[in-house]
Design a protein around this nucleic acid. Structure first.
Lengths: 267, 267
DNA sequence: AACGATGTTTCATTATTTGGAACATCAGAA
DNA sequence: TTCTGATGTTCCAAATAATGAAACATCGTT
């Protein structure tokens, strides 16, 4: 996943990723099987990470899991490195006005990273979706962002896509996707016709800075059981208002110090 | 905060913490002023962290902020290292039944770490509270957990407390706090009488494993404008039911592999 | 043009990381 | 019990990677 490891720090973070990829706490022996690092090295790295609170070691059964220090760091990351704090109130009203589920996403090295969510029906838990990643090529928010990237940025990111066919309607090749992106750019919004998950459809619009840089995207999601694309598209004006409001606020936001104009910083 | 840095990795994570502590993206020069590391070392570490996606560098104004990779990692941490996924549905119903704001917290090196929340009134955003830390000695969840720790664990954690007086009712000394903890243990629940924030009161109960180990705590919070402690205490039976349900599920949870009995792993 | 402040690179020195291998610990089988 | 295989922990000389003072570059200001 991450590029060739720079030095010790890179290796340590690779170990962290390995543990993170696991469903359950993991034994040292298992870790060793998955890692290319020699036993002693891996052992010392894990020890260091435990010392630092990034990993937790359960002595009773000798397993490693991610440490709570990460949750703390992530809170800070979410606060200062995502659009979520800015978008907060706008997502609230969009969710209330439409009665639909709302997602806020940003681009993260070729993948879609969900940074916030409003669930109109059930009371929403907190981390359940923020932090999740999804492919860019088959999600509404992903396609909304792709459609408005520079040509070279797009090329780079398309090269990273797997084009796995999740459902019969998945756009499973670069050519087909590029066609779809053109339509998306022309219309100003993207759709997801059960392309990632059967029964789930959505419409999505990008959040664009004043200089037309892609900052993120917002989507309205529905189930095919309760709604259809036509009905979702009826909410496009609401959605447009929302993304424009976020963009506006993001432009004013950009750090007052030094009087610069930069809006979003994302991968 | 974190102990004497082990090696390069420790230093790198210290840099990460420095950036995380900042309200806004930070310049290199500022970073250097706050760090004891020599310029070149600090520079290279920051570079490495950027390479690794842990930091983001905005070239337009030369600022560093936390990277989105952290949000991804935190999602995994939340999933596998916190009680939140287990407690999810129980917090939902507690919130619905009582109509109150619900917090789920765990202990994190002497501090209270909030890992989930239900806000009965407004639609709840996601990271806004999960990941936040608060002192243990003046919060409901903190006192609920402290009251049920082993003597030596308690001693260790009390040594870390600042006993800063946030409000007139803050228990601002170890002696007074210890008295309060005894009452808490006797009653089985803790209260917060505006001890951390004026106008905010709560009742809280610990989540205890079968072996009586403290796994976390759940609280019901209210405003003095709308309610009082007596009314909150009326919900104690609901709260008790909730923490017992979580404890029960946590005990069944503990990793099926290897047939061990361990429940919670926390700092 | 000269200045001060911030950001970036260099390179010989030094300290840290490295990893093969020995050692330790434990559970189950004979 | 003793043996055996698997897992976890420690050692230490060799190799590598981190170090940091200082030089250099870049920019905005006077």
């Amino acid at each position: 996943m991450s590029a060739a490891g720079d030095g010790t720090v890179g290796k340590a973070l690779d170990v962290l990723d390995l543990v993170a990829a696991q469903e359950k706490p993991i034994r040292f022996a298992e870790l060793q099987r998955m890692s290319v690092l020699p036993k002693a090295t891996l052992y010392r790295l894990a020890q260091t990470l435990v010392n630092q609170g990034m990993l937790v070691h359960n002595p009773e059964n000798g397993t490693y899991s991610l440490g709570v220090r990460l949750v703390r760091l992530a809170h800070a990351a979410w606060r200062q490195a995502s659009l979520a704090p800015i978008a907060r109130r706008h997502l609230d009203s969009l969710s209330v006005d439409t009665g639909l589920t709302v997602h806020l996403a940003q681009m993260d090295y070729g993948h879609v990273l969900y940074v916030d969510k409003r669930n109109a029906l059930e009371p929403a838990a907190m981390f359940t979706d923020a932090g999740k990643v999804a492919p860019a090529y088959c999600t509404g928010v992903g396609k909304a962002m792709l459609a408005f990237l520079d040509a070279d940025e797009l090329d780079q990111i398309l090269g990273m896509q797997s084009f796995h066919r999740f459902t019969p309607t998945t756009l499973a090749s670069e050519a087909v996707l590029r066609q779809s992106l053109e339509r998306t750019r022309a219309r100003g919004f993207a759709t997801d016709r059960e392309e990632h998950e059967a029964g789930v459809i959505c419409v999505a619009m990008p959040i664009l800075s004043e200089e037309e840089r892609v900052l993120g995207a917002v989507s309205l999601t529905g189930s095919t059981l309760r709604t259809d694309l036509k009905s979702l598209e009826a909410h496009i004006p609401c959605l447009r208002q929302c993304v424009e409001a976020i963009a506006e606020e993001a432009s004013h936001w950009a750090f007052p110090v030094e009087g610069n104009e930069t809006g979003g910083r994302l991968g």
